[in-house]
Simulated scan of single mutants.
Amino acid sequence: MIVEAGGVTVKSDERVIGLGRQQPRQRHRSAAYLLLTGAVALLLGTNAVTGLALYFAPEINGLMRKDNSALSHAYEQRITELRLEVDRLHSRQYAQMGDMNLQMHELVQQQEVLSEQHEYVRALTDMARDMGIASPQTPTDPVITGSIAPQPHLSGSDTVALAASISTMQHETRMALVSLSDAATLSTNEILDGLRGVGLEPQVAETGIGGPFIPARGSGESIIDEANAVADALARYHSAKTALLAAPIRIPVPGSGVLSSGFGNRKDPFLNRTAFHSGIDFRVTTGTPVFAAAGGKVVFAGTNGGYGKMVEIDHGNGLTTRYAHMSQIGVTAGQSILGGQRVGLSGSTGRSTGPHLHFEVRRGGSAIDPSRFIATGRTLSSHL
């Protein structure tokens, strides 16, 4: 539509007119939006203020503090319980470590005692070996590891194992000592039985007890009792062996003599009638070495009638031996000699029909059968 106004023609559009009519309505809508937004903001602000007021209100604040205090107290209670549990665990660990340290200290002391005892055992073993006594068992050398300091990393099973090892070692050593004592006792009894068979009774203390060895119940770890028993047995054996070495039981011509004439009545080779033969004769060639049947002191060395060149030795306990018809004498009167030491050479001097050695054993000046001594010497040769 065209409108003329004041000589100006204006073209009007209905949409423009319609738009112009709509502007007031839009303005009302914007105002309402702003009013609504403000109300919401005012409501939120009011709620915030109300919340702060409630929070800082004495009643509400006290209630919240009460809940927080209860929760905090529960946590503190739990923490205290955990700390007590940790302390108990630490105390138990410290107690266990203390027990282990005490056990290790006791083990160290046991090892020190075992080392001292072993020196005694070693001395007894060496003594027995020097005497010629061999035990079926040998005392175990203790494994001395030096100073054992308590180790935190060692467990209870370690200390138990070490204690068991020491106990086993002591038990084996004890059994070895008993075996050594038994060996010495058996040897002593064997010697005494042999000497008694030829009428000798050495002065050796008799104990009169015996039986298999069973460790005492509840006994301590000391092996001194068994070691002392070994010492006593060795002392008895030493006495018996001393008597044995003084007994004329060695063959005067070992390995080369053949018995040609025994002790007692026989036909005299010169008179061809019965006569008493006071010794035994060994058929040997002239110049065969003649040895002392036992240790002693030479009381005669020279020519003695029908004995020819003769040596007589006093062995103590009223026993003497004579070696006759020798071609050469190698000792002098008053000389001390050992058993098995050479006294001269065989021959055929004096009243003799040929080279041989006449050997006599006398007790209290009376001749006794030497063959019994020679037989005993063969039986006890391992102790000579």
Results as ranks from 00 to 15, higher is better:
R266M: 04
V40M: 13
A41W: 06
Q23N: 07
S30M: 11
V8Q: 12
T288L: 06
V284K: 02
E76I: 07
V253D: 07
M175L: 12
Q103S: 11
R322C: 02
R27W: 08
G62E: 12
I79C: 05
T353F: 07
L357E: 04
R21Q: 13
T145L: 09
G6I: 06
Q109C: 00
P248T: 10
G264L: 03
H277M: 08
I2Q: 13
S346N: 05
A247N: 06
K11D: 10
D281H: 01
E172W: 02
G305I: 01
L35A: 15
V40A: 12
G347Q: 02
L42E: 06
E76H: 04
D182I: 14
R273D: 12
K241F: 01
L177A: 05
G347M: 09
D281T: 12
G218V: 00
L114R: 08
D268P: 07
A57W: 15
I209H: 04
T207S: 13
K309Q: 15
P202D: 02
A246T: 13
I214W: 08
S239L: 07
I166Y: 10
T46K: 00
I251G: 01
E221D: 14
I224L: 09
Q117C: 07
R92L: 15
S348G: 08
P289R: 02
R378N: 12
A149M: 07
V258K: 03
E76C: 00
T286E: 14
L259K: 10
A39E: 09
T173W: 00
I249R: 03
E119D: 12
G38R: 12
Q117G: 08
D141Q: 09
G38H: 04
G210N: 09
D99P: 00
N317V: 00
D99H: 10
G257E: 05
V298A: 04
Q203Y: 09
G199T: 10
S261M: 09
V49N: 00
G264P: 04
K297M: 03
S256H: 11
K297L: 10
I251D: 10
T80P: 00
L180V: 01
F300G: 04
G51C: 14
D225N: 10
Q137D: 12
M169F: 01
V284R: 02
A246Y: 12
Y323G: 01
A70K: 14
M310S: 11
M1A: 09
H358A: 02
M131G: 10
G344T: 08
A74C: 06
Q137W: 13
H315L: 10
V108E: 15
N47T: 07
R250Q: 14
H383R: 15
L63I: 00
A134N: 03
A301L: 04
G45I: 05
V290D: 03
T46M: 11
I368F: 08
R196H: 14
P24E: 11
G197T: 08
T274L: 03
F213E: 03
